[in-house]
Design a protein around this nucleic acid. Structure first.
Lengths: 341, 341
DNA sequence: GTGAAAGCGCTAACAA
DNA sequence: TTGTTAGCGCTTTCAC
C-alpha cells in the first residue's frame, strides 16, 4: 500500500548555531563520540580527541547546555535565593558561592525574594522550573508552601545563615540566640550596665535582640532599651536611633548591622560623645570598613564566605552523587574586640 | 486492571517529575493543548483553560524550562557579567536588572569575571552555552576574542557603565572623561588650587583620573597629585593615601569611590584636619551612607538602578522581537554637592 | 479551537 | 573504543 505523496517537509527554523552534529561530521565520528571526547575525554582515543578538538576550534562550537541538561537531567545550574543583594551581609556568601561553583563548572542563578515573602512563591516556580542541581537559600524557608514545594522538587537544598533542627535538607549557619547572649555577656564584662540595642526588623536580627534582652535580664542588668528600625538598615537609621537612646541614659549599644553601628558612631561623634569612654558600640557583620573606622569597630564576625563555600560543596557533592554525611554545619561566630567597646 | 504498556526496552531513568504529558492526560486534552492553555491562554476555550488549570494544581506540575527553552529557542534567562559583586558599585545595577527581568518572567544568571580578564573567557563559554536571551556586561568588553565570540553568538548584548562609539550591540553608560573634567571644574569653582586624587587601578577610574588631571592643567591649576591604589578600593587604602597626599600640600581630593572618600575623611578626622575648611573631599558612587556621613559627602552620583532597568528593557525588547531604535543611551551623572567640599 | 507529527541538541542505554 | 537507537519534555509546523 504505497502512497506516492512525499511526506510533508516540516522544517523548523533551527537556531543556526553550530551543533555537536556538525562537529562530529567534520571530525569524521559519530555525534556521541564527539560528545564523549568533550565530556569524558578519557573514554576516547587520543586521535579522536585531537580530531574533535580541531573541529571544535574550526567551527567555534559552543555546546548547548540546555539540550545537555535536558538529556542528562543535570543542568549544572545552581540557584541562590537572597532577600536582597543590596544588603552587604550576604554578599560574601554569594560571591564565594559563585566562585566555588564556577571552579567546578557550575553556573549560578540569582533570585531576589525581597524582604517580604510575597514574591518568594513565584520565584520558586521559576527556579524549580529550571531544574537546577541545587538551591541555596539565605535564611531558612518558613512558608509551609515553600518548604513543601522544595521538598517535592527533589532538588538538593541548602539553607544558610541560620540554624534550625528541622532543615528542608542541608544547613550551614550559626545560632543567632548564641550571638545575642554572647554580646550581652561581653558588654557586661566591659563593665556596662545599661545596655541598648538598635535592630533591623528582619527575623534573624530580632531573634538576636530577644536573646540579648533575656541575657541582660539574667545577668542582673537594667532592662534593655531597644529601637527597631526597618530593614534594610542604614547609617541614617543608626544616627536617628542613637538620638532616641541617649535620652534613656544608656552606656552600650548592640547594633544589628555594621551600617547601623557606623550611624551610631557618626551621631556620637557629631554630638561629642566619646567612644568607647562614654558609650560602647558593637556591630554585626564585620564589614571591610569596620577595622579601619576611627575608633575601630568592635563587631560580631560571621564568615560569610565560608558559608558560601560550604554550601557550594554540599551541592556539588550531591550533584556528583556523593552522599553528605553531616547535613548540618554550625559555622559559628566570633566577637572581634577592637576599640569601640 | 490488566498490565499497561510494557516498560520501554531502553528505559532511561526519567526525572520522575510530573510532565506536561501527565497534566494533559488528566485534563483529557492533547499535550500541545495543555501547553497552549498555560502559555497562550487566549488560544484555548475557557473550558480547557479550567481543566488544565485544575490538573496543574492537582499534580503540582512545574514546567521544565530547559525543555521549553530547547524547543522554543527562548530560554528566558539573562546573564549578567560583573567584575565582582563585592564592590557595591554595580549592586544597584544588578538589583534593578534582576527585579525588572523577574517582573517580565526572566531569570538572571550571575557570573563574576574578577577584576582581571583571565577568567572571562571560560565564563563566556559557560554563559553562551546556556543560550541566554541576553547578556549584560558591567563595563565594556575589551578582549578582541571576547567581542568576537559575543558577536558570533548572535545573543543580544548590553554593555554598561561606560561609553564607546563601537559597542558590541547595545550600550547604557556615561562618560568617565566628562566626570573627570566636571569634578576638576567643580573644585576650581570652590576655590581649590592644589588638586589631588585617590584612584582605584581599574580602567574606568583611571580614565576619570586622566581627564581630571588634564582638566586641572587646562584650568591653570597645579599639577594633580595622585595616589593609585589596587581595586577593590577600601576605607583603609583611602586612609593611607591621604597620609601620603598631605605631605604634598593638597587642598582637595577626588576619590574614585565613596569607600576611599570615607577613608580619607576618617583619616582627616583622626588627624584633626577640618573638612571642608582645610580639605575638600569628593567621592564617586553616592552610596547610601554618603548623605548621612558627618560632614555629608559630596560625591558623583550615577543612577546605577536606571542602568540596570534600561539594560533589562533592551534585552526584553529584543527577546520579544521589538527592534530597539536607539542602541546607545547616555545615562549621565551628577555631582551631589553636600558638605565635604 | 484542537491535535498529530516532527523535531530542538544533546546523552543514557545498549550493542558491537 | 566506537556506534546505534531512543528518548529528555517541550513547542513548532501543518492539518482539520
Amino acid at each position: 500500500m504505497s502512497t506516492d505523496a512525499t511526506p510533508p517537509r516540516r522544517s523548523r527554523r533551527r537556531s543556526g548555531a553550530v551543533t555537536l552534529h556538525d562537529v562530529a561530521k567534520l571530525a569524521g565520528v559519530a555525534p556521541i563520540t564527539a560528545s564523549r571526547a568533550l565530556n569524558h575525554p578519557k573514554q576516547v582515543s587520543a586521535e579522536v580527541r585531537q580530531k574533535v578538538s580541531d573541529a571544535v576550534s574550526r567551527t567555534g562550537y559552543v555546546p548547548n547546555l540546555l539540550a545537555g541538561g535536558l538529556a542528562s537531567t543535570r543542568s549544572r545550574l545552581v540557584a541562590a535565593l537572597v532577600p536582597s543583594i543590596s544588603g552587604p551581609v550576604f554578599l560574601a556568601t554569594v560571591q564565594a558561592l559563585t566562585e566555588t561553583l564556577a571552579e567546578h563548572g557550575y553556573q549560578m542563578m540569582l533570585g531576589q525574594s525581597g524582604y517580604t515573602n510575597t514574591r518568594e512563591d513565584a520565584l520558586l516556580e521559576a527556579i524549580i522550573g529550571r531544574r537546577p542541581d541545587g538551591i541555596v537559600l539565605t535564611g531558612i524557608m518558613h512558608s509551609a508552601e515553600g518548604r513543601r514545594r522544595l521538598m517535592a522538587s527533589g532538588i538538593p537544598v541548602v539553607e544558610t545563615w541560620d540554624l534550625t533542627p528541622t532543615p528542608i535538607d542541608m544547613l550551614v549557619g550559626f545560632s543567632h540566640v548564641d550571638v545575642g547572649h554572647a554580646v550581652a555577656r561581653f558588654l557586661r564584662d566591659k563593665g556596662r550596665t545599661r545596655l541598648a540595642a538598635v535592630s533591623g526588623d528582619d527575623e534573624r536580627a530580632l531573634r538576636r535582640l530577644e536573646a540579648y534582652r533575656a541575657a541582660a535580664l539574667a545577668l542582673g542588668l537594667a532592662e534593655v532599651q531597644a529601637v527597631v528600625v526597618p530593614a534594610p538598615t542604614t547609617l541614617r537609621s543608626g544616627r536617628d536611633a542613637l538620638a532616641q537612646l541617649l535620652e534613656r541614659g544608656v552606656d552600650a549599644v548592640f547594633c544589628s548591622s555594621d551600617q547601623l553601628a557606623l550611624g551610631v558612631m557618626t551621631e556620637a561623634q557629631a554630638r561629642g560623645i566619646a567612644i568607647p569612654q562614654r558609650l560602647s558600640v558593637v556591630g554585626f557583620g564585620d564589614l571591610e570598613i569596620a577595622a579601619d573606622l576611627n575608633p575601630a569597630l568592635t563587631t560580631v564576625r560571621i564568615n560569610g564566605a565560608d558559608i558560601g563555600r560550604q554550601a557550594a560543596r554540599f551541592i556539588i557533592d550531591r550533584a556528583e552523587g556523593r552522599e553528605v554525611a553531616q547535613r548540618i554545619v554550625d559555622i559559628g561566630y566570633s566577637i572581634v574586640d577592637r576599640h569601640s567597646a
